[in-house]
């Protein structure tokens, strides 16, 4: 008779500290994914809203960038609060990815190498839910690209630290780059759509009466973020945002780290 391998056999004799012990379980990993997902989602929403300043002109958005660095005013040394936020964000990102990675591995193992010969007829799973892994990887690659493009200025000689307006324009004015932004944001929106619905389920914040509302919430938030984020490359490509009357580095007083 075949026996099925259980994790019990490989469990360490000594118990791990509580939080790590808990992290061993898949359900808790999903919780961590949901909580880190909420943090990331909050960041994405704030990021999009802040970027809307692009439409108020170069001065507005560049000052906005500056004030992020200056968070906390004179109470804390400059950029310190921003760095704390960046570290928190990176940590959320890292556990989100680690949990996703280990769950994916586990799931592939649970499913085994043999697959159904007849293509699966999906009834409830939608494109977004089935492509979470791929949309996740796309978003991760995009984040790296996005940082290199606009935070570190690796791709352009015109990049000027602190001149958010001009940097955005110079980047997205090239259509291949605009296309990258559009594609990545579609992936992001799909990721958010399934993630936002899934999050309630994972955290157990559900009530049969509000299940429809949860689905609508996920649709709404994914839709808003999609529209907001797509508007930037489209606006640049469509000429709504341009460099007329803008001198590179014009508002660049003492910006930078």
């Amino acid at each position: 008779m075949t026996t099925t391998a259980r994790r019990e056999d490989t469990k360490p004799a000594r118990k791990l500290p509580w939080i790590l012990e808990m992290y061993r379980s898949d359900v808790a990993k999903k919780w961590i994914m949901a909580v880190s997902g909420v943090i990331l989602l909050g960041y994405i929403a704030a990021h999009m809203l802040g970027n809307m300043k692009l439409y108020f002109g170069a001065e507005e958005i560049n000052h906005y960038g500056e004030s992020l660095r200056d968070l906390g005013g004179d109470l804390v040394p400059r950029t310190h609060l921003l760095w704390i936020m960046r570290i928190g964000l990176t940590a959320a990102f890292a556990v989100h990815i680690h949990a996703a990675y280990s769950l994916t591995r586990k799931n592939l193992q649970a499913r085994g190498r043999v697959r159904y010969d007849e293509p699966r007829q999906y009834l409830a799973a939608n494109y977004a839910s089935r492509t979470m892994r791929w949309s996740g990887v796309i978003v991760l690659l995009f984040v790296v690209f996005h940082l290199a493009d606009l935070t570190w200025g690796w791709f352009s000689d015109d990049w000027v630290r602190g001149d958010v307006y001009a940097n955005v324009y110079n980047s997205m004015d090239a259509w291949p780059i605009a296309l990258i932004y559009i594609a990545a944001n579609v992936a992001l929106a799909m990721h958010i759509f399934h993630g936002a619905w899934s999050m309630f389920q994972t955290l157990g914040i559900n009530n049969p009466r509000y299940n429809n509302a949860r689905k609508n919430f996920a649709r709404g938030i994914a839709g808003l973020i999609l529209i907001g984020n797509l508007s930037f490359p489209l606006a640049v490509q469509g000429g709504l945002v341009d460099l007329d009357g803008h001198t590179p580095g014009q508002y660049n007083l003492e910006y930078g780290e």
């Binding site: 099925t4 259980r6 898949d26 359900v27 990993k29 999903k30 919780w31 769950l103 586990k106 799931n107 193992q109 649970a110 499913r111 999906y122 009834l123 409830a124 799973a125 839910s129 089935r130 979470m132 399934h194 619905w197 899934s198 309630f200 389920q201 994972t202 955290l203 157990g204 914040i205 559900n206 049969p208 299940n211």
Partner: peptide, 28 residues
Amino acid sequence: FFGSCTNHGECHEACPKEISLDFIAFMN
């Protein structure tokens, strides 16, 4: 023994007794 949930909802569709996905949320 088994994999983890990614909230597809396929299980509920296949279930001959139409057990609700809500129970998974309660379990979590």
